[in-house]
């Protein structure tokens, strides 16, 4: 029973805190660039405003366009119930292992790309085409990084991986270091951050994710934005679970949940700082240089795999 309560707590935390994390990243970014920032709560205000507005729908939008925001939001929430953020004792964690998790993000992307093509504008198609191209290069690298971790742990189940890495017997393994570097590169790609995509841009030729959702408004846009924030939060949480699982509560120890929550806030907050350092230090890449970027990620993951077989 306690598992279900933790499950619900975790999902509520994801839905509730994701905008704050987004606000935190924006705030840090403003500071690092010497600007004064909006409040950390600004994303909540943006969402509230969008939800209260009417929807303007293009005259030829089909049901796919209206279906997508809800679907994208649902997959993000479902993913939040699977990733062990607070505890490994999650009834839903059997639902999906890491591979399924990657596929859950893929289905959200699939529909977002379709929605981008639904209206029939050049921007939408451009965004969809680029997004799918990037995804098809990122996914092998992502799975390679995941395979490295799961070979080292003998499992693809996230809860199990957390338990193995967190166990006192585990030591720092070189394969995990390589996999971690690869994961960081992929996480930047998947969440659409600099140097791959710029979440703040509305310049026509640099948009990727923004181009697909250009025609959205009102509550539809709010759901997509919120799901985007949740995705960013989730990737930080996956990184924390795979590579720094300290503090995550075990099964049968519900008392340590508050502590786990504290650890999680610290880890996610710190990952926000790292994210901003990367984003401030780099410029956005030209589209066709991304092959090198993602190739590097794939190479890192492969090196991790090789070092697993050779050294461990």
């Amino acid at each position: 029973m306690s598992g279900f309560i933790i499950e619900i707590l975790q999902v509520m935390m994801l839905i509730g805190l994701a905008p704050m994390f987004s606000g935190w990243v924006k705030m840090l970014k403003c500071w690092s660039q010497g600007r004064s920032s909006a409040s950390i709560l600004q994303p909540y205000r943006d969402l509230a405003k969008l939800f209260s507005k009417d929807v303007i729908l293009a005259e030829n939008a089909s049901w796919i366009f209206r279906f997508t925001p809800y679907l994208v939001f649902s997959t993000a929430v479902l993913a939040g119930g699977i990733i062990p953020m607070l505890s490994t004792d999650l009834p839903l964690s059997l639902t999906a292992d890491v591979i399924v998790l990657v596929a859950l993000f893929a289905i959200a992307r699939f529909f977002t790309a379709l929605a981008g093509m639904d209206i029939g504008t050049a921007f939408g198609g451009m965004g969809s085409s680029r997004e799918m191209m990037i995804a098809s290069l990122a996914e092998p690298a992502m799975l390679m990084a995941i395979f490295t971790v799961s070979l080292a742990c003998g499992s693809t189940s996230l809860s199990r991986i957390v338990e193995v890495i967190y166990s006192p017997a585990s030591i720092v393994k070189p394969s995990l270091v390589f996999a971690f570097i690869a994961f960081v590169l992929i996480a930047l790609t998947e969440t659409g951050r600099i140097p791959v995509d710029n979440p703040a841009t509305h310049l026509e030729l640099t948009m990727i994710h923004e181009a697909m959702i250009l025609e959205y408004s009102g509550r539809h846009l709010a759901l997509i934005e919120w799901a985007g924030m949740m995705k960013l939060f989730l990737f930080m949480a996956i990184g924390a679970a795979l590579f720094a699982p300290w503090g995550i509560a075990y099964a049968g120890a519900p008392g340590s949940i508050p502590l786990a929550f504290g650890y999680l806030i610290l880890k996610i907050g710190a990952s926000g700082i790292v994210l901003v350092l990367i984003e401030t230090g780099l410029a956005k890449m030209r589209l066709f240089r991304l092959t090198e970027f993602l190739g590097a990620a794939f190479l890192m993951a492969t090196l991790g795999m090789l070092s697993f077989f050779i050294l461990e």
């Binding site: 093509m117 504008t121 250009l214 009102g218």
Partner: peptide, 30 residues
Amino acid sequence: GKIHRGPIWDCGFEKLTSRMQYNATSFSMP
């Protein structure tokens, strides 16, 4: 809230024609 059907926004570009859409060739270009 209400749902209004309106013309395509497309960043304010007005003279959109169906030939400006992405097609199969342009989609797979990257």
